[in-house]
Amino acid sequence: MGKVLRVIELVRNVRFWFAPGRIEDEGETPDYRFSLANERTFLAWLRTSLALIGGGFAVDQFLPDLPWAWRVGLALGLLAAGALCALRAVNHWVRCERAIRRRENLPVSRFPALLSIGVALVALAMVVVVLAGWQE
């Protein structure tokens, strides 16, 4: 049940992505400094996403001696994390913007923790792979 509600919430948010102005129907316009701070947080997440995508390229480019499966696996993991991070950045921005307008608490999220664990696992895998000196 909770999952279904979350999916409905996500679809509602996706509608907001493409409907400029709709968000302004809700609540009241906040102090613009709050909106700008929310925007900067969104941009920080977008940069994180771009950095993950760059990391995917880097693994593919600068570890050419790795076995194909490891190289492509690590690169695709980073690229998928980057895409997910970008999508989540807009969704979180919309949720925060609505919460600010309605004077509600900001939404909490377990995404940062999950992303940290994912990046730590990829980093650990790379350390093991490079130290072990596996080559084709």
Binding site: I23, E39, S49, L79, A80
Partner: peptide, 30 residues
């Protein structure tokens, strides 16, 4: 002066560029 707020369409456009970059990167890596 008082800047206009970022619109959802603008934010989505930026994020979708990043997602599409990831898709192109996948094509290059594979």
């Amino acid at each position: 002066g008082r800047p206009a707020a970022l619109t959802p369409a603008h934010a989505s456009a930026a994020a979708l560029c990043a997602v599409a970059l990831a898709v192109c990167a996948t094509a290059l890596v594979l």
